[in-house]
């Protein structure tokens, strides 16, 4: 199984590389610099992330590993521009996310970042094809139907294009969610426990898809609370909001 063709092996976003900004600096897809996030809860402050920094290069697959509540999801959401940190900065493809306006931030998310969640979050009233095509409404150009069909074929879902999410298996649902995340040819894929609800077979398929994406030049940051598989570029161990260990290739 491959995520994309030869062209995407060099650039996962293809030729329409709109997420590259003029202010892009360096080659890293994602730079997290001194990220701190605190929550106020029941009279005391909870530190979800504390001075977290990391840098992911294109074509790398990184795993964020830690127990529940360690701050993995908070880090992914902050890295994806969905959760404003108290301190620190996040760069995606050179864009300093939290200095952008709401519209510009949405544009960067549409063009540069893909999200995959444990719960799939498919829209129940849209067919598989329409779910994959959903990000098109955030894109100004309307020529993504071909890309959606291509992704469905890649993920062996072309026979399910007209089905609704309720008619799919959990593995198929996650593949649809992954196809949706890849529709806009993102540079960065943020995956939060994407295999958490899957059996080993389906988990294997999803991880293989992610590997294909990385091989095509994409960057993956995957959060998981379980043991990671061997062969990843880097494993970040996170505990109580701090990265305690980094194992890299």
């Amino acid at each position: 199984m491959t995520v994309s063709g030869k062209k995407e092996a060099r650039n996962p976003r293809g030729q329409d590389d709109r997420c590259a900004g003029a202010e892009r600096s360096g080659t890293a897809t994602l730079i997290v610099d001194g990220l701190t996030k605190r929550y106020a809860g029941r009279g005391r402050e909870v530190v979800a992330l504390e001075d977290v920094s990391l840098e992911l290069e294109p074509g790398t697959f990184s795993v964020l590993q830690g127990p529940s509540g360690s701050g993995k999801t908070t880090l992914l959401l902050s890295a994806g521009g969905l959760l404003s940190p108290d301190e620190g900065r996040v760069f995606v493809e050179g864009h300093d996310l939290y200095t952008l306006s709401g519209g510009a931030m949405a544009e960067v998310r549409a063009r540069c970042i893909g999200f995959v969640f444990q719960q799939f979050h498919l829209v129940p009233y849209l067919t598989v094809f329409d779910n994959v095509l959903l990000p098109e409404i955030a894109h100004k150009q309307r020529r993504l139907a071909g890309r959606a069909a291509e992704l469905l074929a890649t993920f062996r879902l072309d026979g399910r294009a007209d089905h609704y999410p309720s008619e799919l298996s959990t593995g198929e649902r996650q593949r649809v969610a992954l196809a949706r995340a890849l529709l806009g040819r993102p540079a960065l894929l943020l995956a939060d426990e994407p295999t958490g609800n899957l059996d080993d077979h389906n988990a294997g398929i999803i991880l293989e898809c992610l590997d294909d994406f990385v091989r095509a030049g994409g960057t993956v940051l995957m959060a998981t609370h379980g043991a990671h598989r061997d062969g990843r570029d880097a494993v970040y161990m996170i505990e109580q909001g701090r990265i305690v260990t980094v194992n890299g290739k």
């Binding site: 994806g80 969905l82 709401g102 519209g103 949405a106 544009e107 960067v108 998310r109 549409a110 063009r111 970042i113 999200f115 719960q119 979050h121 829209v123 959903l134 990000p135 409404i137 955030a138 894109h139 949706r180 995340a181 529709l183 806009g184």
Partner: peptide
């Protein structure tokens, strides 16, 4: 709200 959240993640603006 789940769908709204997903739409936000794929870049749909609050206005849309």
């Amino acid at each position: 709200q789940g769908e709204i959240a997903v739409m936000r993640t794929v870049g749909v603006t609050g206005g849309t």
